[in-house]
Design a protein around this nucleic acid. Structure first.
Lengths: 235, 235
DNA sequence: TATTTGTGAATACGTCGTACGGCAGAGATG
DNA sequence: CATCTCTGCCGTACGACGTATTCACAAATA
């Protein structure tokens, strides 16, 4: 471009004050709207009206940004009511985690996939571990470790499953007709081979269970099995 | 480029007979070696000595290829010993899933993140559901659905957690010194604030638990809690 | 032999994360 | 006051990615 056509250099645009918080908030907004897969540094920068490279003054790389996003969600989970009763605390954290993941489905994609070491994630872990430490069948740090592992495993898996299920339901449509049209030839044919009779029954008339209630019932079984009843069961 | 410098066209190289199986096998090889993140269509093609676009004659897109890879792993899980006893079957499937994920860590990344509808995944689901259907406290298809959900949730979460843990251990080094050097300033400082006393104890002297044994013990609690003892507990 | 057809290879496009180089303004120095 | 350095800031650039499209050529047909 010849210099006389070159755009008049703007008098140093009023600097948009950037910060890790603003960047993280914008990233969460975009991830909520369009999913993790389509979340890119460039789009976040565009959302903030800034060149892509500006973000690297505040964030080392994409994966660090994901860590920041995750910890923001943990902050919300940490706000779950703290009860003095250990069981109520554990259940509250689990429910808060599930609800956070339903609000921010990308959170489920990240759950369990990286160590959660942000300050708020640590706070949630601390509250959970301290509660379990006060539970009746849990003696010593090893028991706490196992109990925490079992409960977190269940939460991670359950939340992931529910989110994936909800996604496929959204993309295929809820009713059976749309379902057969979408997974159509393939899955229907598969189930009609007769090789998967139990799965077929599950698919056909097992779709009506309430997700929240299922989560709650299974969670209680895990929590009481791991921490509550162990001692009570013993003679 | 002038035509006389143009490379002599090779006499149409002997066609490498390609197939979905060969492509999937190569993809698994690469994913085992370098992880999912660095697995690309182009690298798989190079591994097979073929142009990238050739793969699209056998596979619709990258995500379909991932589905194929996942189902190959399920084939191996489906080979887990089938026992007539429902409990032995459920435990065998769980252990086989864990071991497969430890051999193919990328499998853990995909676990729970997409619906598993390949023929072998369905076979595993069928075996699991049929076994639970024979379990004593499980009555009706709804109970099967809940029980299967609980167990699968636990497996997914536990496996993901174990794989991530193993990865960070690998990247930081196992011993405490290397650990503090790597997460160093940050995590150490965090734990020293005194805000996370229970977590600190877990980190400091909770590292010695055997992963396989922990998985097994927690799994048994979940399985028996969900399917076995429910009825026995009732009056 | 002339023409059509089908198929594997190559090129092309838009997007990604991020390394780098240069430039404007502020402060320091003669 | 003149000049020089230094510090952010920003645009540009690069290599890799998934994949649509185009192209060249061997085999098949007329």
């Amino acid at each position: 471009m010849p210099i006389w056509e070159r755009p008049e250099p703007q008098p140093r645009a009023a600097p948009v004050p950037l910060s890790r918080e603003k960047i993280t908030a914008a990233a969460i907004r975009l991830a909520d709207a369009h999913g993790l897969e389509s979340l890119s540094i460039r789009k976040i920068a565009k959302e903030l009206g800034v060149g892509p490279m500006r973000l690297y003054d505040y964030v080392a790389n994409r994966s660090e940004l994901l860590d920041l996003m995750v910890d923001v969600v943990y902050a919300r989970i940490a706000d779950a009511d703290r009860h003095s009763e250990w069981r109520a605390t554990v259940l509250a954290i689990a429910h808060a985690t599930r609800e956070a993941a339903l609000d921010h489905e990308w959170f489920a994609d990240l759950l369990g996939g990286r160590p959660h070491l942000g300050p708020h994630a640590l706070a949630v872990g601390e509250a959970n571990a301290a509660a379990l430490n006060r539970a009746p069948g849990v003696h010593g740090i090893d028991d706490v470790q196992r109990a925490l592992g079992a409960i977190n495993s269940f939460i991670i898996g359950a939340v992931r499953r529910e989110v994936t299920e909800r996604r496929t339901a959204r993309s295929t449509g809820t009713d059976m007709a749309a379902f057969q049209r979408s997974l159509g030839p393939y899955l229907t044919r598969m189930l009609e081979t007769g090789r998967y009779p139990t799965v077929a029954r599950l698919v056909i008339d097992g779709a009506h269970l309430d997700a929240a209630e299922t989560f709650d019932r299974n969670l209680i079984v895990v929590v009481d099995g791991i921490a509550g009843r162990r001692q009570a069961d013993a003679p």
